[in-house]
Design a binder for these strands. Structure first.
Lengths: 146, 146
DNA sequence: AATAATCCCGAGTAATTTGGTCAGAATTGA
DNA sequence: TCAATTCTGACCAAATTACTCGGGATTATT
């Protein structure tokens, strides 16, 4: 039940972009340096963020990335789903509409727990969608109490 | 952001025990067979369930497992935490009080997203703790609409 | 036009986690 | 005594994750 490093990095990088919103493009090199994240790994993550339409790229010298929308219109859920795919806490909830994959069937019965997992998925999305990048950068970083 | 097969198996096995509550011990062999789960993998899972005090074992011939409490006093969260450890959606939330592990600190600041992850963790626990084994076995398995 | 800074892309690799097996000891009802 | 069972620790294979590598495409600057 853990989010990946991609998510952690993605959120931090997007927060960096949000803090720089309205200015010139921010390069991956710069983000990687300031957030201490592998440059090449970040490239992969930004490929996903771009495909999801959360950032826009400016190619060439002095290029970089910009938020595609203002920080209050991008929320953490958008980022998580972009870099990790849709939230699906168990296999039988993976949405895979075309294929004829079995739902969670065991010995002829659909799994009794399905509605629990569905509720869980919905609450997770709710929480992640309730916080925007704007909220994130407004809130003070917590003091480092031991 | 996925629960493991251990959780899925653990919940199904506990539901089987709940359906058999008040009767004689149910053996792992029986559960493994009826739920179509690897016997030896189930052994591992039940070791965790037992250590967590959710089941009691009866050793020897005609032995097996019993729920340690009535089905309405055991909830899905108990099972998930027993077999997967405490819910901690990001590393910086792993509770590890003794050790001096760093909190999520990046370049001197605690991570801005920490409170989001905390809220997420709390909601996940809430959902999982809101459904008991009793609820689970009372609810009809969902019909298998394609 | 040349250069350097940047995004872009696909393949490959190392580390970790997960799901499961194996072998056998300990316990107990029949 | 024997068969059915729990219990334990080590082991193993597959999958996933985190990251690297090599190079191509684009563009501001000189």
């Amino acid at each position: 039940m853990k989010l990946s490093a991609r998510v952690e990095y993605g959120v931090r990088a997007m927060a960096a972009l949000a803090l720089h919103d309205g200015l010139d493009p921010l390069s991956l090199k710069e983000i990687a340096r300031s957030e201490d994240i592998s440059y090449q790994f970040l490239e992969q993550i930004f490929a996903d963020l771009r495909k999801a339409g959360l950032v826009e790229s400016v190619r060439g010298a002095r290029g970089g990335y910009l938020l595609a929308r203002p920080p209050n219109e991008i929320n953490i859920g958008d980022i998580v789903r972009a870099v990790e795919g849709p939230i699906a806490p168990v296999n039988c909830l993976v949405d895979d509409p075309g294929s004829s994959r079995e739902p969670c069937r065991h010995r002829g019965e659909a799994c009794r727990a399905r509605h629990v997992w569905e509720k869980l998925r919905d609450r997770i999305n709710e929480v992640l969608d309730s916080v925007s990048l704007h909220d994130l950068i407004e809130s003070k970083p917590e003091p480092l109490v031991k």
